[in-house]
Write a protein that binds this DNA or RNA. Structure first.
Lengths: 219, 219
DNA sequence: ACCTGAACACCGTTCAAGT
DNA sequence: ACCTGAACACCGTTCAAGT
């Protein structure tokens, strides 16, 4: 049926999706694609093997098992966290720009970041940025354990922002709070209205970041 | 084998684990037990039915399916978030005590909180505390959209702390960073040592909370 | 109204077997 | 060295059938 010429084959039996030979690297590449596009749950061994154009079992030869694939994906993400460039004329501004660009790059790989979080690899994710941030903190007078605490606070602020964004993005109805649950009487109507809107986690991030940096620079 | 009396039965065929009849409530109770003790992944329909002493399929009669069970668990958690009591003589101190007690109660139900987070129900988790916190923010001069932003910042701070704790607790090797990855030369040795220790997210929480509250109270 | 077993499609994983 | 199909134990879910 249809008006096809009949000579154009469906392409289903093309030589293994572009003829790329299977390898641990290729497997992780395709797996990363699935995870980033459809979430971790969508990564089944059978779907992965289908996308690779190969039998399920051959994946087990190259990488160990599903868990090893997930581990490999996280390792890949960490390896690609390049040192970010700081911009700004003051230490505080440079810290802010670093935190912002970290957040941006992590947002591009939301599902992978979630995966890294579940495996408690988030600290490793910030390793490349850590030295640069430590230098800025030092010029604010923060060193030793104080600097470590400040570093971790900034790190938690960044990833938590990404995790919140991810949860909100995954679900259709955002952080909308039913305004009717508030007492209709004396309570601040503007506040209730603002809370009824879905949360804008970028604004929350920026607000928290500014407060934190002002606090760190010693009021 | 062993020295048992032989008259003491194994108790395996006791009348349905205490004879409690199956119901939607009972199902959620047992399901919550499994999730809180062994994590969400451990909650399989077959294990749930085993613990209930009933056939798998009868669960489908009471509640719809696995997803409905999970939804029910989150609803239960939200319903149990009682209004917390504020302690302290100043608005800032009362806000701090509320954030702390929220964190504590959430930490007791880590897995359930993780579940609520995945379903983007975290804003609803803070609803009971929201009015009380709004009142304190008002006496700091924060109302309307400003108060909403402050509220959300505090909320994100609390749940992110819980989420971090959970990730760290689930994995044996904490946020330890390999000190050897830092340049051995001029970099702050105390800082490197502090980062080599596993992150103490309670301290990170307290530090961030204080900075946030100082910032909110208008420096 | 409530519970059951059989059955389905789908998982991850192992293994003996092919080339 | 690499890939395969068959097979296993385990999922969630449906359905016709029992009482």
């Amino acid at each position: 049926m249809g008006t096809g010429t009949g000579s154009l084959r469906a392409g289903a039996e093309a030589p293994a999706r572009g003829g790329v030979p299977v390898s641990a690297d290729r497997i992780l590449e395709v797996a990363g694609d699935i995870v980033e596009r459809h979430g971790v749950d969508a990564l089944t061994m059978r779907r992965l093997s289908d996308d690779l154009g190969v039998a399920v079992t051959s994946i087990y030869w190259h990488v160990g098992n599903r868990d090893a694939v997930l581990d490999g994906l996280v390792d890949r993400l960490l390896a690609r966290m390049e040192t970010i460039v700081a911009e700004g004329s003051t230490p505080t501004l440079r810290l802010a720009s670093m935190a912002r660009s970290l957040r941006r790059t992590l947002l591009e790989r939301q599902h992978l970041v979630g995966l890294a979080h579940e495996r408690d690899r988030t600290p490793a994710m910030f390793l490349p940025a850590q030295q640069a941030m430590a230098a800025e903190l030092a010029s604010l007078g923060l060193t030793g354990a104080d600097a470590a605490l400040a570093l971790r606070t900034l790190q938690v602020h960044v990833i938590s922002s990404v995790l919140m964004d991810r949860a909100a993005a995954r679900n259709a109805s955002h952080g909308r709070v039913d305004a009717s649950l508030w007492p209709a009487d004396g309570s601040d109507p503007e506040l209730v209205a603002a809370l009824a809107d879905p949360a804008d986690y970028e604004t929350v991030f920026e607000f928290g970041l500014e407060v934190l940096l002002v606090g760190l620079s010693g009021d």
